[in-house]
């Protein structure tokens, strides 16, 4: 199995997500006088969720342009490349989820999520991001630059959704009760899992028919 490169790259993505989340949190904390260092640790999981999902979207065409080409050019089988792609996406999601759960456990009563609700929500968002990323990657492999248009459309759609959620969160208690509800958490996870599973079907076909381009 030739997976070392995929695994290393997966961990690199995780470290980038953590670093970006921490720096963003630091910036927000320093800029807002009403926030203290405790708030940084409490809010860090939210930033991790945000950057974790965004990273799954951001590196999609790059995965096909670079990682998949390299793997097949250097003698990987298609099955190994497919497994590598999943590891590349799942390693950051799993590590990010684990870190979020730990941070929430440490935060105690200040935590936004309980570790048990954080687990499915983080996994769900990571999987959903991975699924969208997979679709963009497939579009890139088949239609080239059309993937860029799709990426922009998805980001706009996510922006609008984010805006709606921001308006709704003016009632923080409502949002707090929603995210801490176990049913909602597992619903997010279920949707993520179904999307990811569905995206794997065309991805399998795409990788199987892929011709190396370097």
């Amino acid at each position: 199995m030739k997976l070392k490169y995929w695994i290393t790259s997966g961990f690199q993505i995780f470290l980038i997500v953590v670093a970006a989340s921490f720096l963003y949190g630091l910036l927000i904390t320093v800029q807002n006088s009403y926030m203290d260092w405790n708030d940084l640790w409490v809010l860090l999981p939210i930033y991790q969720l945000l950057f974790g999902g965004m990273m799954q979207l951001a590196q999609t065409t790059g995965v096909y342009k670079l990682n998949l080409n390299l793997a097949l050019a250097f003698g990987s089988t298609r099955n190994e490349a497919l497994l590598g792609l999943q590891l590349f996406r799942l390693i950051p999601t799993l590590c990010n989820t684990a870190l979020i759960c730990v941070l929430q456990a440490v935060a105690g009563e200040n935590a936004i999520f309980t570790p048990l609700t954080a687990l499915p929500i983080s996994l769900g968002i990571g999987l959903a991001g991975g699924a969208l990323g997979t679709v963009i990657g497939i579009v890139y492999a088949r239609f080239g630059r059309l993937a860029t248009v799709l990426t922009v459309l998805i980001i706009v759609a996510l922006g609008i959704t984010g805006g709606v959620l921001a308006v709704m969160s003016s009632e923080p208690q409502w949002l707090q009760s929603l995210v801490s509800h176990m049913g909602f958490s597992w619903l997010v996870f279920g949707i993520g899992l179904i999307l990811y599973g569905a995206a794997m079907i065309p991805e399998h076909r795409t990788v199987w028919k892929y011709s190396v381009r370097m």
Partner: peptide
Amino acid sequence: ETRKSLDRLCFSRELNISAESGL
């Protein structure tokens, strides 16, 4: 899809590095 056979082969391609290539 045969690992044993692929281990015995190497095709070193001509590299065409474009600005948008990740390489």
